Simulated scan of single mutants.
Amino acid sequence: MKTVWFKVDPGHSGQRLDVFLAQKETGLSRSQVKHVVEEGDVLVNSLAPRVSQKLKEGDVVELTLKPPKEAIAVAQDIPLSIVYEDEMIIVVNKPAGMVVHPAAGNPDNTLANALLFHCQNLSGIGGVIRPGIVHRLDKNTSGLIVAAKTDEAHRNLSAQFEKHEVHKTYQVLVWGDIKGDAGEIFLPVGRHATDRKKMSTKSRRGKDALTLWKVRERYGLATLLDVEIKTGRTHQIRVHLSSRGYGVIGELGIEGHQRIDAEHELGAVAQSDRSMERLD
């Protein structure tokens, strides 16, 4: 548990409490601030505030950050699309809409729950939340996930990912007819300045990120791309393509486009430099 204090300066006088805290380096969004206020983990001048309270110059805001409650993955009978399996690893095609492992807001019905039911035993290195999980894909991204059945396989696969020996290619459907047949985007990616749930290329603390893209097929109003990321920043593909004016179909679009259902708007394929059958 950690407690931090903020003193309101003249530039933030009159600002709502939730907006004030969401802009600080707390990692909390406005909705998360609302939750911690309701839990009694925020005080203003030693008194319990309302989330909408307007702050004044000189106010002292006290925030207690509690460690998240750890979820535990339990076996659930959920169908899996298995691409490859042996005694050491399993490769599955994760559908869009499925979370990889339990987390806040997604305690069950995850890929980890399904793997525990199918495999019975998985590597314990990932702990009770991520049994056998070596890497992840976003909830709305479909694609291949490799999981380790043994600790030896887990260590070996983790080393391959860390050394960038695994090549990951994504197929992405975006709005618009992209100019050119290939290109690269080199822009930093970091947390949005005011909405901590979002990522942005204009973050003051963004980290370097490189995305390579190539046109696979054109549909007039949309373009299918093969995308390779050389860095692994959160939501890197979506953020980079959006910065060029090409919104991923299935996300909130650009220039007035509405969100549409696109089950496979973002898909991933992974291939290792080494054979899957040889992990030593």
Rank of each mutant, 00 (worst) to 15 (best):
K69E: 14
E62A: 04
V74A: 11
P68V: 12
L55A: 02
E38M: 10
K69D: 11
S46P: 03
Q76S: 04
S31V: 09
V74W: 06
P79N: 03
E62M: 10
A75Y: 05
A48S: 14
V36M: 09
V44P: 00
Q32V: 00
V51Y: 03
S31H: 08
H35N: 12
S31Q: 11
I82T: 05
V60G: 00
S31D: 13
E57G: 14
T64A: 02
K56W: 02
L80E: 02
K56A: 11
E57I: 09
K66M: 09
L80C: 03
L55S: 04
S29K: 07
V51A: 14
R50D: 08
G27T: 01
R50I: 00
R30D: 11
G40F: 02
V33N: 00
S81F: 13
D77G: 01
D41T: 01
V74D: 07
P79V: 00
K69Y: 12
K56T: 07
L55G: 00
A48Y: 04
H35P: 00
V42Q: 00
L28F: 11
A73F: 13
A75S: 13
S29F: 10
E57A: 14
Y84R: 10
L63K: 06
E38G: 12
K54T: 04
I72K: 15
Q53D: 11
K66N: 15
K69S: 10
P49I: 10
V36L: 15
N45P: 03
A71N: 09
Q32C: 00
V83P: 13
L43S: 02
R30K: 08
Q53R: 14
E57N: 12
L43T: 01
V60K: 15
H35Q: 15
S46F: 02
E57F: 01
N45A: 03
T64E: 04
G40C: 10
P68Q: 11
E57D: 12
A71W: 13
A73R: 12
K69H: 12
V60N: 09
V37F: 05
A71Q: 13
A48Q: 10
R30F: 03
K69M: 05
L43Q: 06
V36F: 10
L47R: 10
I82C: 02
L65V: 03
S29E: 07
V51N: 05
A48V: 07
P67V: 11
V44C: 01
E39R: 15
V37T: 08
K56F: 04
E57T: 15
K56C: 08
V74M: 09
S52I: 06
P67S: 07
V37I: 08
E39T: 08
D41C: 08
T64M: 01
R50N: 09
E39V: 03
V51M: 08
L65K: 07
L28V: 01
V74G: 07
Q76G: 02
